[in-house]
Design a protein around this nucleic acid. Structure first.
Lengths: 132, 132
DNA sequence: CTAAATGCAAATTATTTGCTCCATC
DNA sequence: GATGGAGCAAATAATTTGCATTTAG
């Protein structure tokens, strides 16, 4: 909230609603789900405004989004610093403690000299259950 | 070509053109670029047909595509088994010998029990040059 | 000949933009 | 009361689908 006012931005009802939706949801959700009131649990709002607010909140570092595959982006509060892992077979999107990817990041740095980030494009593959 | 005929599919002019475009290009290209004749080097063709053909060829395992970020998908012949790495700062998309990711894949398997694939969503991060 | 595929138009999906009016600071 | 933001409509971008006509096998 201070983050908003500090830049002359306002904490409007619609904006508050976007944040409420993100925190109310169990996991990452789409703009459409937010506009739909997370399945009726919250009042519905305008989709274009939702997108505009998500963008603003993302610039402020309050929100993140990533892509689980084709289809709409998935948004989360960036308060939860989780990284995501997607199974391309069962479609499961699961959160992960970022530390659990430290070894992988280090390995990529060693092998490719690159600082990888899994925050926008998650790790995609076949999960243990589906490979089993 | 045998791959096509074997399934009752035809090697039409448009389909041949899609393959020609993919092989003529220096790297992964978009459907739009293919339809545009790779900048005039080849005859232009219908975008919808290009998409349909890309899908068919992908099902046959002759073509792959991945996403370098927001924007259209990038297609390549799957003959080149390269994996791709994208720098989110300079936008550079560079091919990589798949073996160079073996260590990373192994690390992910060890830490998360998952078989990662970087073929649809490439590794994204900050490259050596941009981090420098 | 006969199914598969083209080419064009129109529909979908995800997202962005313009603009007028409303509400927050 | 000035200006950021809402809400609605319309535009854009990427891709998909329907259908009448063409064409490869």
């Amino acid at each position: 909230m201070g983050a908003l006012r500090g830049r002359g931005l306002r904490l409007s009802a619609a904006r508050r609603l976007v944040l409420a939706a993100l925190f109310a949801a169990e996991g990452p959700i789409t703009a459409e789900q937010i506009a739909g009131g997370v399945g009726g649990q919250l009042p519905r709002s305008d989709l274009a405004s939702v997108y505009r607010n998500l963008e603003t909140l993302e610039e402020l570092g309050l929100v993140r989004h990533f892509h689980a595959g084709h289809g709409p982006g998935r948004y989360t509060p960036s308060a939860s610093s989780a990284e995501y892992v997607v199974c391309e077979r069962c479609g499961d999107v699961s959160a992960l403690d970022p530390e659990r990817l430290d070894g992988v990041r280090e390995r990529v740095r060693a092998d490719l000299g690159m600082e990888v980030r899994f925050s926008h494009f998650p790790l995609v593959g076949v999960c243990r259950d589906c490979a089993g």
